[in-house]
């Protein structure tokens, strides 16, 4: 879930550039953080998902190592370079119009989201549905393993997939999911056990 976080860091010692870019970025509907120097990163210690850094080439060569190391929990750190005579795709010319800058940022974000969203199908397999049913009916991993004649290790792996695909983590949550999806009937469960 946290892979979908998009963090845009506007890294520039110039207040003019910070103000200009931040108003363009917020107009495009993104959250941004303003950094004057690398130390400011300490105020944002838990960035997840995409960290898109807008930065000049000079600041990049001084700070890239530090930024990459600092954002280790993020799924990806990518850069858009700021300058006055730049024309490549991953570069922003400070003379560009707001629309062009927004387009370049959006392109980076889309590229990231495409890469991270197609990774797995959300459809549950037949086996996963069987495991879900037994979980919802209150069985332990051992009991599920016995009744499906598989190892507990396999049961645990099915349960991990169930949580990844549905986004639901707790047993009571999975039970509710099974009822909503009509995989089990509400009459078959003991609602006192919804823990």
């Amino acid at each position: 879930m946290d892979d979908t976080q998009i963090n845009i860091l506007i890294f520039s010692p110039s207040e003019t550039i910070q103000r200009g870019l931040s108003s363009i970025i917020s107009e495009a509907g993104f959250e941004y953080f303003l950094l004057k120097n690398a130390d400011d990163l300490f105020d944002y210690p838990h960035l997840l998902g995409l960290v898109l850094v807008m930065i000049s080439q000079e600041s990049y060569s001084e700070n890239a190592g530090f930024i990459d190391e600092f954002c280790q929990q993020a799924a990806e750190v990518s850069y858009l370079f700021l300058g006055e005579s730049l024309n490549m795709n991953n570069q922003i010319n400070l003379n560009d119009s707001a629309a062009v800058i927004q387009h370049k940022v959006q392109q980076e974000v889309n590229r990231y989201l495409d890469k991270h969203q197609v990774s797995h199908s959300r459809e549950l397999s037949r086996r996963e549905i069987e495991v879900l049913k037994l979980v919802a009916l209150g069985n332990t991993n051992k009991e599920i393993a016995d009744s499906l004649s598989i190892s507990t290790h396999t049961v645990i792996s099915h349960r991990k997939n169930l949580t990844e695909k549905t986004g639901v983590k707790t047993i009571s949550g999975l039970t509710m999911y099974a009822v909503i999806k009509q995989i089990i009937d509400i009459k078959d469960i003991n609602t006192d056990n919804l823990k």
Binding site: T166, G167, K169, T170, S172, G173, I180
Partner: peptide, 19 residues
Amino acid sequence: SQLDDKINDIKNLLFRYLP
């Protein structure tokens, strides 16, 4: 984290799965 998981589940059920 266990309590957070539960609230997170309620949110997910509500937004993703409820008719």
